[in-house]
Simulated scan of single mutants.
Amino acid sequence: MASTDVIDRSTGVSKATANIPWLLVPALLFLIFVFGWPLLYLLRMSFNDHPGPTVYEEAWTLRNYIAVLTEPAMLTEIGKTVYISLVTAGITVVAAFFFAQFVWLREGSTRLIFLAIALGPMLISEVSVIVGWRLFFPYNGLLSYTLVSIGISSQKINLLGTEIAAIVGLSYISVSYCFFSILSVLNGIDRGLLTASADLGASPIRTFFSVLLPLAKGGIAAAFTQAFVFTMGIYATTNALGPDSLWTVPYEIQLQMLTRRNWPMASALAIVLILIIATAAVLTQWLRHRKGRRHV
């Protein structure tokens, strides 16, 4: 049957392919309307002033950005947010990678069962996750009861209200997304390379570091940044499970917006947070094209 795709002799590109960009215009307009316009409004709001009783006053001032980037309390919150996000992303990626590798090497129904398990956290709301961990970590919670029952600890412990609880809760929320990102990369790797490495005398550890890890490096970088970006924008889990002193930028944004009614300051904080996230996203793209272009 003759092809209905007409080729433009001057460019060598089919007319159907040339029309594809026009098909993207509705989606582009939708993104501009839904995300672009609110972002511009947020940026404009960040330059307004907050004189007192009113929510904001029309102005063009850098006072909010100066406060965000110079006040010790604000810098501490930014540092804590980045720290918690980096630690959570590191733990999440390590757990997601080894679980993804385990599932990648499975076949048939066993693989499907573990894929269903990995989907579990994605089907649970953040509120349900918070409630579940709040029942797990406290003095009379499941963790304390289990440790005492099996003899690991002689007395009950309380991890609720600690950074450990906050990191565990954040990791639980983001681990599934990292898992599927890494698994998609592993699925593009020929398993025969692992067999060939073993046949040539390499130990499993050397095969892991010399063959598997370099091939999956781009996907790991993408998953790390995905977890980092995801964690940077969450405040409910951190606030509910972590200590009272663990004030993050998202928590400060909602405090400035809803409690102090200082919309310009909240907007400036949001813009700074977006810039940090955008930097991480750009770095991810660079690593993906430089290290993992073939598999991501």
Rank of each mutant, 00 (worst) to 15 (best):
V94R: 10
F102Q: 09
L273D: 02
I164G: 03
L287K: 12
T88G: 13
G90F: 14
T259C: 00
I205N: 06
N48S: 04
E77D: 11
W133H: 06
A16P: 02
L269G: 02
I253E: 01
I78W: 01
Y235V: 03
I113R: 09
G79K: 00
K15R: 13
A18T: 12
N19W: 10
V175T: 07
V103I: 15
F228I: 02
Y177N: 01
A95E: 09
L31P: 03
E126N: 03
A18N: 15
A202Q: 05
I152W: 14
S154D: 15
V103W: 10
G233I: 06
F137D: 00
L40C: 06
G12S: 10
I271R: 01
W60V: 09
E163L: 14
V55G: 06
R9Q: 14
S210E: 14
T248E: 04
A16D: 12
M122N: 08
L258P: 00
H50I: 05
G219Q: 02
I277A: 13
E77S: 09
M1S: 09
L283D: 07
F136S: 03
G201D: 11
K80R: 11
A100L: 04
F208V: 10
I164T: 13
Q254D: 08
T195F: 14
T110S: 12
L147W: 14
L213G: 07
L183K: 06
V148Y: 03
A165R: 05
S210K: 11
I32H: 03
V34K: 09
I32F: 12
A221K: 02
V13A: 11
A222F: 05
F97R: 00
S109I: 12
T195Q: 15
A222M: 10
P38Q: 08
I20S: 07
L43C: 04
